[in-house]
Amino acid sequence: YTAFGDLEVFLHGLGLEHMTDLLKERDITLRHLLTMREDEFTKNGITSKDQQKILAALKELQ
């Protein structure tokens, strides 16, 4: 049995499950992801397509 964390649930909701391992390897938490700047997305290997999905979701949360 494995409990999913906030990061996994957030990514799954956006259809971005493939990013879970990448972000965990880089010790990026959901809190960090929510406050990242555009250059940090790129530096951490997050594609512009995935970045757009994340940023759109963040706008909806605000």
Rank of each mutant, 00 (worst) to 15 (best):
Q52G: 11
D27V: 01
L55D: 06
D21M: 09
T29I: 01
D27N: 14
I46F: 14
R26K: 13
D50E: 11
S48G: 14
E60T: 14
K24I: 09
T42M: 14
M36Y: 02
I54F: 04
I28A: 01
T47C: 12
I28G: 01
R31H: 03
F41Q: 03
L33F: 07
E17R: 08
L7H: 00
H18W: 07
G13R: 14
T42C: 10
D27K: 12
D50A: 05
G13M: 08
M36R: 00
Q51S: 13
I54W: 03
L11I: 02
E40H: 03
K53Q: 06
L30I: 09
F41D: 01
T20I: 12
L55Y: 08
D50P: 01
T29C: 06
L7G: 00
L14M: 07
R37I: 03
A56Y: 13
D27L: 01
Q52S: 09
E38D: 11
L16K: 00
Q52R: 10
L14A: 15
F41G: 03
K43G: 05
G13N: 14
K53I: 05
F41N: 02
A57S: 13
T35L: 05
E60F: 10
T20S: 11
E17D: 07
K53M: 06
G45I: 02
Q62F: 08
E17C: 09
H18V: 03
Q51D: 00
F41S: 02
L7N: 00
Q52W: 06
L55F: 09
Q51Y: 14
Q52P: 06
H12V: 09
K49S: 11
H18D: 10
D6Q: 06
K43M: 07
T35M: 09
I54L: 11
G15M: 01
Q62P: 15
T2N: 08
I28Y: 02
F41T: 02
E17Q: 11
T42G: 09
K43E: 10
H32R: 13
D27F: 01
A56C: 11
G45H: 07
I46V: 06
G45K: 04
L33A: 00
Q52F: 06
K53P: 05
E17H: 15
T29F: 01
I46A: 03
D27M: 03
L11Q: 00
D21P: 14
D50I: 00
T47I: 09
E8Q: 09
T20P: 05
L61K: 14
T35G: 08
A57E: 08
T35P: 01
F10H: 02
R37D: 13
A56S: 12
L33V: 02
